[in-house]
Simulated scan of single mutants.
Amino acid sequence: MKLFGLKNCDTCRKALKVLPEISFVDVRVDGVPLEVLNRALGQFGDRLLNIRSTTWRGLTGEEREKPPIELLQTHPALMKRPLIECNGELYLGWGKDTQSALGVS
Rank of each mutant, 00 (worst) to 15 (best):
G61M: 11
P20H: 13
N38T: 07
I51S: 11
V29G: 06
R47T: 07
M79Y: 14
P67L: 15
L37P: 10
L92R: 01
L59E: 01
P76I: 05
W56V: 05
G95T: 12
L16I: 11
R47I: 04
R39L: 02
G58T: 11
D30R: 09
P33C: 10
A77G: 10
E35S: 06
L102Y: 11
T74C: 10
L90C: 04
E62T: 09
C9W: 13
K80N: 15
K17Y: 15
G42S: 02
L59G: 04
L3A: 01
G93E: 08
L34G: 13
Q99M: 10
G88Y: 04
T54S: 15
M79I: 15
T60E: 00
N38Y: 07
T98W: 05
L41I: 05
I69M: 10
T55N: 07
S100L: 09
R28Y: 14
Q73P: 02
L83K: 05
N38F: 08
F24R: 03
R39M: 02
R28D: 10
E70Y: 12
R52V: 06
N8C: 15
V36Q: 02
R81H: 13
T54A: 13
G88P: 07
N50Y: 07
P82R: 00
I22W: 14
L34V: 13
L92T: 01
R28A: 14
L78P: 06
P33L: 15
Y91S: 08
G42F: 08
N87V: 09
R47M: 03
D46F: 14
R52F: 01
K66R: 06
E70Q: 10
R39T: 01
W94T: 04
V27Q: 00
G88D: 03
A77C: 08
V27D: 00
N8Q: 14
P68A: 04
G42P: 03
F24E: 04
G95M: 08
P68E: 01
Y91K: 12
H75P: 06
I84K: 07
E35L: 13
G42V: 04
F44I: 12
L90P: 00
V25E: 01
L37D: 06
Q73A: 03
E65L: 14
V36A: 09
V29K: 12
A77E: 05
L59T: 10
I51H: 14
P67S: 14
H75Q: 11
L72Y: 04
L48Y: 00
L78A: 12
R81K: 05
L3I: 04
L102H: 05
